[in-house]
Design a protein around this nucleic acid. Structure first.
Lengths: 197, 197, 197, 197
DNA sequence: AATGAATGAGAGTTCATTCAT
DNA sequence: GATGAATGAACTCTCATTCAT
């Protein structure tokens, strides 16, 4: 069953195909932008037929969404987990800042794609990042209830917090500097000064 | 300003044409997304011929860029002006925060477009917002030199500041709440706590 | 006839599969038109695999032809049988007219399909209906030889007779009115007046 | 302005283009069937660009319909005119039978197409030929009111009359025999015997 | 014999751009 | 300068057919 790349046709297991498809799509979407990438060109790079793409995903947009879906969850879940470890709020912020950089590192290509495709993915008024925003908001509310965070319009405060994190990560993504640990420390500091009582 | 109000279409004045073109393009780009808007449909709404669009702009992308160009400058210039009025840094931050909301308000449609088209405008690695980022960075550097701002990786710090502002404005853009003044106060507070020594 | 009614799908008996195939194809062709029905969708409704369709018929067109083939034979054979019972020509026409409505009734779905697919089935210059036409022609010739039918260009006369029958049946198919018996009487009357000496 | 076929691009008046388009479409639809003809191939034969086809017609089906539209009117109008000349009903039938063969002759290619495309043009339950059918029905009713035609289910009678005419014309279309005059006489005879009192 | 995943040619349609008028 | 008809490359998506399992 170990096909040696000799017979290009009708072989390989579905999951390796899906992986190749994602990989090719990710690379091309990131480099040229969703709208400028054709299914044909993705299929070609992935080594599958055009029709096969449509066995995996109903259409081009669903392909993009499927790829993006994971990353938002990754952030949300990691933040939740870090938060739930408890401890004082300063400690929590430290952990969360570390956590988001971890996820960003692991998923850097996808993250880049995530930030590129605003106008295409969510047409219903939703925005990519909304789930993360929600997560931040609920943590914020809890912390305010505990008297740990400064008061203010919750939506506005959590949106700013979200922007702060995004800014930090975007910066780090572009050059890798400052190193991850240092970056997460700087972020945590500003968060504490900006939002902690 | 000397439009006769008699025949709104077929205006002979080129600048009124350009204005109509921008208006139509802005509306359609914002509503349907750059890629899904055709030159023909913009031209029609603007009351000019397809070919005439190409007298104004070399191609579709140049039209978009031209429209976007202004808004980044508007922010940069306003921030610079507010900054240059001097005074202590806390005062400056107050002014700048007010200023950005002013610009955001005046240019809200364009700003929306600005945040929608990430993947289309800059393919060379540049990002929309880079000029604003630069502006923040240079102000940040100056303030650190004066001992007013906390030290840190300048790129990271200014990128976070940028994110913070963006988050605040995005929030405000989506619902108009909290009211402009209040929003700018909240932003200014977080900025002072987060970045001021 | 030994279907167990237990598991209607995945019958092992090839003929029941063929029947299911025909049934599904008939329904879908009639509803959506030959060209807009996919083999996959027929196979699905019939509860068999796509590949299995190709065990029964070489390709999609052969499937359609096979389905249609039967109905032309049905008409031809019934007309022949009714004619062969002999008696005077007026009686024969009565019988034949009854007969065609009988067949039309039994095979109404197929008949509808038959009238829908003109441009697809016969590309060689033949037309659906040609065999029926031939049958009518040979009966006509015989009746003219006997001095029972009016003379005239045999092809033209039998083609008109064919048209007359078709017109009557089409009318009846669309609404079921007038009732079968009445319809066949009206047809027989016109045939007698029109063609009998 | 008399372009000598020298510059294949961007010339010729719209009507010559539309004519070429119709001609090419008619030929290809007739020969290969609507579904097997691509817009590209029609455009090529017509000497225009694919996109130009879409300037004339919204889509492929509209092209077909536009081509067919005329012929039904031609028949209806001619029948009406012939009928309206008055005289006894026998005379009217003579005239009408001549008339339909005239139209059939003038429009023979279109007529062939008309009879080929049953399943494609009218999806709403209507059938090509329905307007002709209606026309026959209204004439039939009038003649029955005058006591000139045999009584019977009006729908059935007129549908048979329609079938008769169609049968005659189809026959004549296939080989051109018997000659037009003779063909129309035979048709008229059968109509008179079949329907006149 | 039966399956259905895989194929890829080919379809209809769109639209940025050109250029004769 | 302004126009908009014309262009044709390029797109997404479909589906008859094949063939490894």
């Amino acid at each position: 069953m170990k096909n040696e790349e000799t017979s290009p046709k009708r072989t390989r297991d579905p999951e390796s195909k899906r992986a190749a498809l994602h990989e090719a799509a990710l690379r091309q979407f990131t480099e040229r932008g969703y709208e400028h990438v054709s299914i044909a060109s993705i299929a070609k790079e992935a080594g599958i037929a055009v029709g096969t793409v449509y066995r995996f995903y109903e259409n081009k947009l669903f392909l993009l969404r499927a790829m993006l879906e994971g990353i938002e969850s990754d952030f949300v879940e990691r933040m939740q987990a870090d938060w739930d470890q408890g401890g004082d709020y300063s400690k929590r912020l430290d952990r969360i800042c570390e956590g988001v950089f971890d996820v960003a590192k692991e998923r850097s290509s996808l993250l880049r794609l995530f930030t590129m495709t605003t106008d295409v993915v969510y047409q219903d008024g939703g925005l990519p990042g909304d789930r993360i925003q929600q997560q931040i908001k609920s943590m914020y509310r809890e912390a305010v209830g505990d008297g740990a965070f400064r008061k203010g319009d919750v939506d506005m405060m959590s949106s700013m917090a979200h922007g702060l994190v995004e800014g930090a990560i975007m910066r780090w993504m572009r050059t890798g500097a400052p190193a991850e640990t240092s970056a997460s420390h700087e972020l945590a500091n500003v968060m504490k000064n900006g939002f902690l009582n």
